[in-house]
Each structure stands twice: as C-alpha cells, then as structure tokens.
C-alpha cells in the first residue's frame, strides 16, 4: 500500500466521521428545539397566570443589579479528551448566597415556571452535547483539510 493509498483510506474514514457528526449535531439541535419549545410553552402559561409583563426581560437582572454568580457553569471533563481539548460537561453549583432564578419572578410563582425551568435545564444538557459534537466536527474537518493538502503535494510530486 503506497502512502497515497493510506492517505486516501484515512480521508475516507474521516469523511464518514464528519458526515456522522453532522447528522448527530442536527439531531441534537432538534432535541434542543423540542426542549426549548416545551419551556417556552410553560413560560407562556406562567405569563397568562401572572400577567403579560410579570414574566419578561423586565425581571432579569440589569447592570445596576447586585452582582451574582451563575448557578450552571461549564467544566472540562478530566477523563474524556477531544483532540487535546477536554470534553465539556455541565456543573451546577448552589451556594447559600445564590438565589433560585425563579425568585426573580416572585415568591408565589405558578408550577409552570418550575416546569419551564426544568425544560430549559434539559435544553442545556442537549446544548453541552451539541457543543462537544461540534468541537469534534471542527477538529475532523481540520484533519481532512490537512490530509487533502498532503495528498495534493504527493500528487504534484508524482
């Protein structure tokens, strides 16, 4: 097997990988869409119960609000590594100082707001998976590009 054949074989495998990753990413994004859609429906129900402006961006903290830390952050997994970069995973840190974001909308909120929160948390889980797949796709595409260059050089040398 010549060097060119080996490159072509690897290119075939990487191309198949890229296609699989593309399909996987699209599927995950559709799952994100479903979760978000469910969350938005529950937001709409909460809005119907509490009033139009009671569940809106008006309740979100602004630059003048006291500073607060995110409850959900992203960390790199130690055991799983994607092409030199750690696979991402969600981390939920809850301190006593941090208040539940649901409290921004009041203390007696409808259950729908909690349902919405859990749907968006589910969407976040899908999003982390999508980001990991996207990172692998970018790396695979980068490798394909490099091998194509190498293949061109070999063909020119022939």
């Amino acid at each position: 097997m010549t060097e060119l054949d080996k490159i072509c074989t690897v290119l075939d495998k990487l191309t198949l990988d890229a296609l699989t990753l593309m399909e996987e990413e699209i599927q995950i994004k559709l799952n994100v869409e479903n979760a978000m859609c469910g969350g938005e429906t529950h937001l709409a129900k909460s809005r119907y119960i509490l009033g139009q402006n009671s569940v809106s961006s008006l309740q979100l903290p602004t630059e003048n609000s006291p500073d607060f830390d995110a409850v959900t952050t992203v960390v790199g997994e130690d055991d799983e590594e994607l092409f030199g970069q750690k696979a991402r995973t969600l981390e939920v840190v809850k301190n006593e100082e941090q208040i539940d974001p649901v409290r921004w909308f009041g203390y007696l909120v409808p259950q729908d707001l909690y349902h919405s929160q859990s749907m968006f948390k589910q969407a976040l889980q899908w999003i982390i998976r999508a980001v990991n797949v996207q990172t692998r796709l970018i790396e695979t595409c980068g490798k394909i590009e490099q091998l194509k260059e190498l293949k061109k050089e070999l063909l020119v040398a022939k």
Binding site: G39, L60, T72, V102, S116
Partner: peptide, 19 residues
C-alpha cells in the same frame, strides 16, 4: 426575550464584579 428568560431560569446568568 423567551430564550434569555428561559436560559437564565436554567441558571446560566451572571453579572460579574465589573457589572
């Protein structure tokens, strides 16, 4: 609005020390 409200409900929002 709905996307921001939803994901901030999920706990991703933060305002840092520099506001």
């Amino acid at each position: 609005e709905d996307t921001c409200v939803g994901f901030l409900l999920g706990g991703v929002g933060e305002i840092n020390k520099n506001r």
